[in-house]
Every structure is written in C-alpha cells, then in structure tokens.
Simulated scan of single mutants.
Amino acid sequence: MNHNYFTQQDVERLEAQAVQIRKDIVSMIHDAGAGHPGGSLSAVEIITALYFHVMRIDPARPAWSERDRFILSKGHSCPALYAALARRGYFDPALLGTLRRYHSILQGHPDMNKTPGVDMTAGSLGNGLSAGVGMALSARLHRQDYTTYVMLGDGEIQEGLVWEAAMAANHHELKNLIAIVDCNGVQINGWVNDIMTVEPLADKWRAFGWRVLEIDGHDMKEVLTALHTAKSMRHHTVILARTVKGKGVSFMEDDCAWHGSAPNDEQLIQAMEEIRKGGVA
C-alpha cells in the first residue's frame, strides 16, 4: 500500500484532532448522563481521518450534491460523528453539550433531518450498507463521482441484511463504495465471538466479491493508507479495522458494560486525564 497520500505532519495533526474528539465524546456523554462511549471511542481514528483528510466535503454546504457521503450504520456511536462534525465546522462545538436533550440537534442516534452533515438517519442496526449501495448507485445514475463510505460494527454484521447489501454491491460492481468494519470485538452483552462469531471475516467478504484491507484501526498511518488505497482501487472494498472498544480510557477498554453507560464525575476526570496523557495534545 502506498504511503504517499499524506505527510508526517498530516498524521500528527490528525492524531491531535483524535485526542480532542475523544475528550468531546466522554464529556458529552457524561453531560447527557447516557450514551455509548465504547463504540464511539473505538471509531475515532477512522472518523477523524475521513472528516479531516480524506472525504471531499464542504461544511458551509452540507447538502452539496458532489460531496462524499458517510453513513454511520452503527448509529449509537454518533458522539464520535457529532464531535467530528462540530470540530470540522458544521455547527458550533458548544452544542455538543446538548447531546440527547429534547429539541437538541444531537439526538441519541443520527438524524439527517436534525443535524447538519449527517447523510443518513440510523438507529436500527444493519441498514447502513443497503443505503450506501443506493447512494453509490445514485452517483452512477446521475454521473457524479462522489464516494460513499459506510461504517459498520462487527456485532452489527451478524445482521443478514448486511450480507444482502454486500451481494448487491458486488452484482452492480460499485466502484465508489467503501465499507469500514469497526472490529472492536465487543457488542452490547459480551464478546462478538462468544455470542455469534463473524470470523473468518476477511474470507467472508472476499467470498461476496469484495476486496479486503486489514489494518490496525488506531494507527493513523494505516487508517489513512487504507482509506486512500481503497478509493484508488475503484472496486467495492471493505476495510477491516481491528480496534479496542473504549480505546483511550483504561476502565472502558474491552468491557461491554461501557457499550451504553455514561461516566460519573470522578470517572470523567480520570478519562479526560488518560486521554490527554495517551495522546499528543
């Protein structure tokens, strides 16, 4: 894979941005008293790379027809997306403190009718890749050259609908569709491989006609390289990103109890300190 898509300065800038997004995630979930920190924290490097380096977007024009699309199929991880959108300029970062409040633009799952920059309303798991197939087909029909990115969870892909969409993408030879699986290994009530294993994951995707890239989802260089490589392939590609649920906060890592729990005041202080020490900002 080619590393000429970015510089070391880009990597350092993005790693610093990822630290800020992690701080935003734990802070807004603490303030809301509810939310999903585990899967939000595991997705940070990927979402940061997409919104601050890879995707063709314009925060001043959220509905720009030529923009790249991003679907957060595992919609409960929306704090990571909201933080990225706010820091990218789609709305005032002060609004992050309104997560999950009545009448807030930041609900517990993404709502494209409420939040600037959200390309698909998500909630019920398993739907995102099908919507991504539709968006990719729309680009072809309207002779547009945008790329559609879909982030899925490894627990989520236990849903059969995901594999129907994977078949459809292969059948229609969608060159402008990239899927990313956040393989953090943990779902709401335990380890994915104990509940219903999805392995061998790479072999499954290849059997459905997809090209597969496997990376460390917390290594910014690997994330950037994979995203740029996938786009250059011009073939429906899936990136299997091996990650850690709750990454950056020791007491949240690899613990399903933090799939959908909010830190208390003391835990917030510890989390913010660990994120600061573990990052570059």
Score class of each variant (00 low, 15 high):
residue 48 T to A: 07
residue 10 D to H: 09
residue 44 V to K: 04
residue 30 H to I: 09
residue 64 W to N: 01
residue 54 V to D: 03
residue 13 R to S: 14
residue 18 A to G: 08
residue 60 A to K: 13
residue 69 R to M: 05
residue 10 D to L: 10
residue 40 S to A: 15
residue 26 V to P: 01
residue 6 F to K: 00
residue 48 T to L: 03
residue 14 L to M: 07
residue 70 F to K: 00
residue 66 E to T: 08
residue 43 A to I: 03
residue 57 I to D: 08
residue 65 S to V: 13
residue 51 Y to V: 07
residue 56 R to Y: 10
residue 52 F to E: 05
residue 38 G to K: 11
residue 46 I to L: 14
residue 9 Q to V: 14
residue 57 I to R: 15
residue 48 T to H: 07
residue 47 I to L: 15
residue 14 L to H: 02
residue 42 S to Y: 05
residue 39 G to M: 05
residue 9 Q to A: 15
residue 57 I to Q: 08
residue 61 R to M: 11
residue 71 I to R: 01
residue 63 A to F: 10
residue 35 G to Y: 11
residue 59 P to Y: 00
residue 70 F to E: 07
residue 9 Q to T: 14
residue 26 V to H: 03
residue 19 V to W: 12
residue 5 Y to A: 14
residue 56 R to M: 03
residue 31 D to Q: 15
residue 6 F to V: 00
residue 6 F to G: 00
residue 66 E to Q: 11
residue 14 L to P: 00
residue 17 Q to F: 02
residue 7 T to G: 06
residue 66 E to V: 02
residue 71 I to L: 03
residue 30 H to Q: 12
residue 54 V to L: 04
residue 21 I to R: 05
residue 32 A to G: 09
residue 64 W to C: 02
residue 68 D to K: 03
residue 24 D to L: 00
residue 34 A to K: 14
residue 14 L to T: 02
residue 9 Q to E: 15
residue 6 F to R: 00
residue 72 L to K: 04
residue 51 Y to L: 12
residue 31 D to G: 10
residue 44 V to L: 08
residue 9 Q to S: 13
residue 69 R to H: 06
residue 58 D to W: 03
residue 11 V to I: 15
residue 38 G to I: 11
residue 51 Y to D: 11
residue 40 S to M: 09
residue 11 V to E: 06
residue 72 L to Y: 01
residue 63 A to Y: 11
residue 56 R to T: 14
residue 46 I to G: 00
residue 66 E to A: 13
residue 26 V to R: 01
residue 15 E to Q: 15
residue 37 P to F: 10
residue 30 H to V: 07
residue 68 D to P: 08
residue 36 H to K: 11
residue 26 V to G: 04
residue 12 E to A: 13
residue 49 A to V: 04
residue 27 S to A: 12
residue 50 L to D: 00
residue 34 A to P: 02
residue 38 G to L: 11
residue 26 V to Y: 06
residue 24 D to S: 13
residue 71 I to N: 02
residue 45 E to T: 01
residue 9 Q to L: 13
residue 26 V to C: 05
residue 8 Q to E: 15
residue 7 T to N: 04
residue 51 Y to W: 14
residue 49 A to P: 04
residue 12 E to Q: 15
residue 67 R to E: 04
residue 23 K to L: 13
residue 69 R to N: 05
residue 27 S to W: 09
residue 10 D to K: 10
residue 52 F to M: 07
residue 68 D to S: 08
residue 67 R to D: 05
residue 43 A to W: 02
residue 57 I to K: 08
residue 72 L to T: 03
residue 55 M to R: 07
residue 8 Q to G: 09
residue 72 L to A: 01
residue 27 S to H: 10
residue 38 G to W: 11
residue 46 I to Q: 00
residue 21 I to M: 05
residue 32 A to H: 09
residue 33 G to K: 09
residue 30 H to L: 08
residue 60 A to M: 09
residue 26 V to N: 04
residue 8 Q to S: 14
residue 44 V to Y: 10
residue 55 M to G: 06
residue 46 I to E: 01
residue 57 I to V: 12
residue 53 H to K: 15
residue 24 D to I: 00
residue 69 R to F: 00
residue 56 R to Q: 14
residue 38 G to Q: 12
residue 28 M to H: 04
residue 24 D to E: 08
residue 26 V to S: 06
residue 8 Q to M: 12
residue 14 L to V: 05
residue 57 I to F: 02
residue 37 P to E: 07
residue 13 R to A: 13
residue 22 R to L: 08
residue 36 H to S: 12
residue 28 M to S: 06
residue 24 D to T: 02
residue 63 A to V: 07
residue 71 I to Y: 00
residue 67 R to F: 07
residue 13 R to D: 08
residue 71 I to W: 01
residue 38 G to S: 12
residue 68 D to N: 06
